[in-house]
């Protein structure tokens, strides 16, 4: 932050002489203070997880959910300034609805990420606005089965469509992360917020790239996600937190292609394993010390 006080950090529409937009960089600082949020793209679905820091004992447990549904097959988790996140989600829902209005089909996750990237980027261009103080992780499942036009009736030939190209695989799990600059990439595993470094280190150990053979399953992904959030929380151990977790499976999977909260039993199991794994590590460390 050597340039503080030089004046180039006061307005969005002004570059510093070395080509930086300080307002965006400050927005990134806002994100770095938020609870850790991660997304994992598994073989048969996507998991979103969030370390929700408890800011007051007066808040009801398990209320005030933070992971939002955008369309039936898409969820968003974000880290940073909460109200900015709400606005982001609201815009994402508008985009998803408008896509449905035009094309009578759900928006592909990639198109949603593209549109939201453009939207966020526009907030880095004008002096009258400030950039988004969040990094958002967008996860979803594009149907791999044929999806008919919304509202259409009739079913076509009984034998199915002719002339399909064999071996064409469509749809599947998708995961994107959008930063305050509007930059976005598709990821196998994404992490943001306070514990992102630890989380990324853990994500890199998982088998998520299909090129390396069979990827981890959705259920494994849920357990890993819980563990990673617990690992990422280690550095701010003094603060209470709640784990929030949602998932989206294939159409023939447990959520039927929809974005839903992870069932209680599975989540509790994942949290139990996460805690056990951490204690195991502690024991190891203790042993080493001895």
């Amino acid at each position: 932050m050597t340039s503080i006080g030089t004046g180039y950090d006061l307005s969005n529409s002004v570059f510093s002489p070395d080509g930086r937009n300080f307002q965006v960089e400050y927005a990134v600082k806002a994100v770095e203070n938020g609870g850790t949020a991660i997304g994992i793209r598994c073989k048969d679905g996507v998991v979103l997880a969030l370390e929700k820091l408890v800011t007051s004992r007066l808040l009801k447990k398990d209320a005030n959910k933070r992971i939002a549904t955008v369309d039936r097959n898409i969820g968003v988790v974000h880290s940073g300034l909460l109200p900015d996140g709400r606005h982001f989600v609201s815009r994402a829902r508008d985009e998803a609805q408008s896509w449905r209005g035009t094309y009578k089909a759900p928006i592909p996750v990639s198109s949603l990420a593209n549109r939201m990237g453009s939207y966020v980027q526009a907030f880095t261009l004008y002096s009258s606005v400030r950039p988004f103080g969040i990094t958002a992780i967008v996860g979803g499942w594009d149907a791999e089965t044929d999806v008919d036009v919304d509202g259409a009736v009739g079913s076509g030939p009984k034998v199915g469509a002719g002339g399909k190209t064999k071996g064409v695989k469509e749809g599947g799990p998708y995961l994107y992360m959008i930063e305050p600059s509007g930059l976005y990439w598709g990821y196998y595993g994404a992490a943001t917020g306070k514990g992102r470094q630890a989380a990324k280190a853990e994500l890199e150990k998982l088998k998520l790239d299909p090129k390396d053979g069979e990827c981890i399953s959705l259920e494994e992904g849920v357990k890993e996600a819980a563990r990673i959030i617990y690992v990422a929380h280690e550095d701010s151990k003094d603060k209470d937190f709640e784990l929030e977790m949602t998932w989206i499976s294939a159409v023939n999977g447990p959520t039927k292609g929809r974005h839903e909260e992870v069932p209680k039993a599975l989540k509790e199991e994942a949290e139990r394993l996460a805690k056990a794994a951490l204690e195991g590590e502690d024991e190891d460390e203790e042993k080493m010390e001895k």
Binding site: K65, A68, R72, R100, D150, G151, E244, E260, E261
Partner: peptide, 17 residues
């Protein structure tokens, strides 16, 4: 269908069961 999507905006806060 769009009403159903809106009704499920908070499925983040409900598990299927």
């Amino acid at each position: 269908k769009s009403l159903d999507v809106e009704e499920n905006y908070s499925t983040g806060s409900h598990t299927a069961e």
